[in-house]
């Protein structure tokens, strides 16, 4: 982080930093975090539109809480794969993971096909399998409709 950014968003003693969020997705990611009652009491700092040498502009979120719920991590892979999750202890980064696009999204999103049976019977767990390694397209395990990562991100389950 540039010294200028450090001034804009203070270091935390312990918790999680979600870094390298593409600019503009910081607020949707905050909305996601808001779905977890266990994070309700966490002190959260949201930073938008920081300068980034790699990304041009980026958003960043710091949570004074840990760990992140596993399902939230999976949803981050759907909404903004490529973000960096840093675990902070005593003001130092002790672990750093880049969130990758997985081969399978298990019950995280609704199918984009309105005529898919999973939309008629919402208790059914959806599955979307990656078409091939490296692809940004996924296939519904039920209706076989192929959709993009962005389309799935727009259909997150409650």
């Amino acid at each position: 982080m540039t010294p200028q950014n450090i001034l804009l968003i203070p270091k935390i003693e312990r918790g999680i930093v979600i870094d390298h969020i593409p600019a503009g997705l910081g607020i949707p990611v905050m909305a996601l975090i808001g779905r977890w009652p266990e994070l309700e009491d966490a002190v959260i700092t949201l930073g938008l539109n920081y300068k980034s040498t790699r990304m041009g502009r980026k958003d960043m979120i710091k949570l004074q809480a840990e760990p992140l719920p596993p399902r939230l991590l999976q949803m981050l892979a759907l909404v903004c794969a490529g973000v960096t999750i840093k675990r902070i202890d005593r003001f130092e980064v002790v672990e750093k993971v880049v969130v990758q696009v997985p081969e399978l999204f298990d019950n995280l999103a609704r199918c984009i096909n309105p005529n898919c049976i999973t939309n008629a019977e919402p208790h059914v767990a959806t599955r979307f399998k990656r078409l091939e390694s490296g692809s940004k397209h996924f296939k519904c395990a039920h209706c076989e409709r192929v959709c993009s990562l962005d389309e799935l991100a727009g259909h997150l389950k409650a």
Binding site: N113, C116, I117, E121, V124, A141, H142, C143, E144, R145
Partner: peptide
């Protein structure tokens, strides 16, 4: 047979 896609898989 069903008018909705994905029913047989389900």
């Amino acid at each position: 047979r069903h008018p909705k896609e994905g029913t047989a898989r389900l």
